[in-house]
Write a protein that binds this DNA or RNA. Sequence first.
DNA 1: TTGCTGAGAAAGGCACCTTC
DNA 2: GAAGGTGCCTTTCTCAGCAA
Length: 363
Amino acid sequence: MPSSRVRARRGRIARRRKRTIPNHNDSRTTYNEHFYFVLRLSRIFMRAGPMDLDDRTLRRLKLSDLRLFHAVVQWGGMAKAAAHLHISQPAVSKAIATLEQTLGVRLLERHSQGVEPTQFGRALLKGGIAVFDELKQSVKEIAFLADPTAGELRVGCTEPLAAGLVPTVIDRILREHPRVVFHVVTADPATLMERELRARNIDVAIAPTAEIISAADVDVETLFDDRQVVMAVPQNKWFRRRNITLADLVHEPWILPPADSVIRASIIEVFRTSGLAPPRNHVVTFSITLCYQLMASGRFLAMLPLSMARSHGGLPLKILDVGLRGIPRPTGIITLKKRTPNPLARVFTSSVRELAKPLARGR
DNA sequence: TTGCTGAGAAAGGCACCTTC
DNA sequence: GAAGGTGCCTTTCTCAGCAA
């Protein structure tokens, strides 16, 4: 039986503990991180359904548990997650059980072949991705403030923009921020938005905006019409001709995008509007590298975005004046709303805006 | 203010159990 | 047999209290 002095002391300690954040055995979990984490989770669970999540319950949630829960879902089982995290299976099982007890809901469906997240588990996962992304962005912000010449930026763009505008922007930024690392992903606009931006694999996307379905979670800033114009290299026989029309070029070797693409349909429409049959498909490809290689021979023509001719990369492409304004293709910056921006993303987008100004004239 | 101490909480491992 | 769950244990960490 403890003495009255000891009991009184223990009582005082217990009362103090109730007023403070519990010990998480994780020195990396700072008060601010915990506050933000709890705030996000409370919003997530408010959306998930009516639940009794009081302040103490939310304070028990830990970033380490969320990371562990992520691993379990990612690997499809507690034992597999434990192996990847270098801890024992019971440790994972207990952590998940504690998490479920704290939240008062079942997060995982247990099967003989592993586990699967429930609707509550999926809600937690979705929020978890956002929580870790926000933390990552904060760390990047701190790193950028500590050393503005370094950092990391993930950019998504289409193939033509990767061959024109984007390298010019990157080159410009690297002159001022020489130790910045760029990760560039190329894909079609819809994939960039769904697979890369929403999954937070990229910080910013530069792409044609007309093909982006407007959504509440996405910011679209159209900067210029990247007109599709007829292009050739200076060695091409048509380059020095004057007063040429589309009809003169229709029987030349053309490089065209695949038949099921939006841009191919627009090109065909241009020929039809001029009363012409579409050119024969000599080469059908989305590959800009292949396009460059073929055009370098001086034989092939292609309808490419104006930004490719205006930027300082790749082949010295020249516009053939066939008396058309070109197919307008609104292009701009796409970012995720309510996401703390990577400080380098701000540098990147302002550089894009500046370089897009000459292309935006007449828009 | 600093360093030490002790209590309590949390994390995680081992052995074993249960379920499919 | 494979997977998760449970009980018991040890280790580690945090923090209040206290003395110098």
